[in-house]
């Protein structure tokens, strides 16, 4: 194991705040698990990645690239659905894989990622590069749950052409250490990228979430939306950046993180950054963290719900809009997992 820095901010702040990056202990994976595809029509083994593909760190990206490699090409004008499932179990405690998705002009893909497993799971090192040509549309739903002892790296990069649209909804519920690193380049005019994440941190979970979207094309649209709850001694850091570059006139972006702290020992840091070198844009950023509102609890209790039920309703209601944006088959499972985690003793 060696100490590495991950999820470094694009613009650094005071060092004493200790938020410029996160230091973690890194070990390379023992590749043993394999991904399971619902349909291999468009899947080929092997992939190449551009040099500008950045991960949480060079080490974590290299670990993913050393594993399985696949290219998924959706031909122009075609529509496809694909589920990729990775299970980490006793004999297959690690996974490493890198995926290059190419959606040709006007292609559409509904993609579901499912990552699950047992307490024996050690780690998942995932990297995916999404290249959307003009007017292509991508919808990603991701659920990761269980994996109580695992370190999970998810590194993704989106390159969007003119009027291309990518909509990502993720449920980050499992894992001991969860590292997400997502970057988007809105190159084409009117391209749009949405990153929505729901999370629950319990016990001693550590979530390190990084999102960065570059607006290059005109009238591009972005949204980064994080919502979750932290209990026990969980720790979460949310770094998000919207960067409006010169020439992206008429672009709009919004970023925000809203966390409910269910325990005084839970730790939450949110850093929503706005960078801008173009005048004619609209960017909003926000974050809030706090306990469940006593006023809201009282209102719900006045309708017959117990304190515990009222708290659960409030937490769920914060997350529900993102859960509802997941692919239908994942929604109930996600809600049940959120309930199970937040109801568990010793949170």
């Amino acid at each position: 194991m060696k100490e590495i820095a991950i999820n470094r901010l694009p613009v650094l702040t005071y060092r004493y705040l200790k938020t410029n990056d996160t230091k973690i202990l890194f070990s390379a994976p023992q590749v043993s698990a394999a991904a399971d595809f619902s349909d291999k029509t468009y899947v080929t083994v092997g992939a190449e990645f551009p040099e500008n593909f950045e991960g949480a760190s060079s080490e974590t990206l290299a670990a993913a690239l050393a594993g399985e490699k696949y290219t998924i090409t959706i031909p122009s004008g075609m529509q496809a659905k694909l589920t990729i499932e990775i299970k980490l179990e006793n004999q297959h405690a690690d996974y490493a894989g890198a995926y290059h998705f190419l959606l040709q002009k006007g292609a559409k893909l509904e993609l579901v990622w499912k990552l699950s497993g047992t307490e024996a799971a050690q780690g998942s090192y995932l990297a995916s590069y999404y290249e959307l040509e003009d007017a292509a549309e991508l919808k990603i739903s991701k659920l990761q749950a269980d994996l109580a002892e695992a370190t999970l790296y998810d590194q993704r990069f989106f390159k969007l052409g003119k009027a291309a649209k990518a909509d990502v909804a993720s449920a980050e519920l499992g894992g001991k250490q969860v590292i997400v690193h997502s970057r988007g380049a809105l190159n084409g005019d009117e391209a749009a990228l949405t990153e929505r994440t729901v999370y629950t941190g319990t016990g001693k979970q550590h979530l390190d979430l990084f999102y960065h979207i570059d607006h290059w094309g005109k009238k591009t649209v972005s949204l980064i939306d994080g919502k979750g709850a932290l209990a026990g001694e969980a720790k979460k850091i949310f770094r998000s950046t919207l960067d409006f570059h010169r020439g992206c006139a008429g672009s709009e972006g919004e970023e925000g993180d809203y966390a409910i702290q269910l325990s005084p020992k839970a730790k939450n840091i949110s850093l929503p950054l706005l960078l801008c070198t173009e005048d004619n844009v609209a960017g909003n950023h926000a974050s809030s963290a706090g306990q469940v509102s006593e006023e809201d609890v009282y209102y719900l209790m006045s309708r017959g719900f117990s304190w515990e039920e009222a708290r659960r309703i409030i937490v769920e209601s914060l997350m529900r809009p993102i859960v509802d944006s997941l692919e239908t088959s994942l929604q109930e499972e996600t809600l049940e997992e959120i309930r199970r985690k937040l109801d568990a003793k010793g949170e």
Partner: peptide
């Protein structure tokens, strides 16, 4: 017993 609140709260998600 039912109280109709002067300022009812919003519960997004339900």
């Amino acid at each position: 017993i039912f109280l109709s609140f002067q300022s009812p709260v919003a519960v997004a998600g339900i």
